[in-house]
Design a protein around this nucleic acid. Structure first.
Length: 156
DNA sequence: ATTCTAACA
DNA sequence: TGTTAGCA
């Protein structure tokens, strides 16, 4: 059912979680002055603003970035070095995310139970992890064609 | 109340 | 980077 995945998408849509400069400042211990300066130097980013006079908006991703820079700064690195290492980290995180995303090819429902599509097991079968509401997990192999049909009914 | 830019410390 | 001024 479309409702099922739509709901999940909404729950996991981190882009809807945004902050203003004062919030980022109090959450990270980095001053508003620093945040504006770092942005000016291209070390972090805020969302596009129609007017330059409007309040900056930061995504959760930027919050993480600021936190990492702050951490490395406290470790004694220079601002430039801290920003580079934070950037390297986020690049690595993206790589890992892609890796996991490839393995987890989607969410679907089988007989009313939630299941993870773990991808091709062999030429004609797909491995699924079944996650009952009661908890626990078990695995099943299904013909590729059948999984394709189920995935089509529950688009990602 | 909060954020913004600019400017001086 | 911190602060302050003068706005919005």
């Amino acid at each position: 059912m479309a409702e099922f995945s739509d709901e999940l998408r909404q729950v996991f849509d981190v882009k809807r979680l945004v902050f203003r400069i004062g919030e980022i400042a109090s959450m990270t211990g980095v001053s508003a002055r620093q945040l504006r300066y770092w942005e000016q130097k291209g070390l972090i980013q805020s969302q596009e603003r129609p007017d330059e006079k409007q309040a900056r908006v930061y995504t959760f991703k930027t919050f993480i970035q600021v936190s990492m820079i702050k951490y490395f700064l406290d470790e004694g690195l220079t601002l430039a070095a801290a920003a580079k290492r934070a950037g390297d980290r986020q690049t690595r995180a993206q790589q890992i995310h892609r890796f996991i995303t490839r393995g987890l090819q989607g969410l679907l429902q089988i007989d009313g139970e939630m299941a993870l599509n773990l991808g091709a097991f062999d030429a004609e079968q797909t491995l699924l992890a079944i996650l009952p509401d009661e908890g626990g997990v078990h695995y099943r192999l299904l013909p590729n064609a059948e999984v394709r049909h189920l995935m089509a009914a529950t688009p990602n």
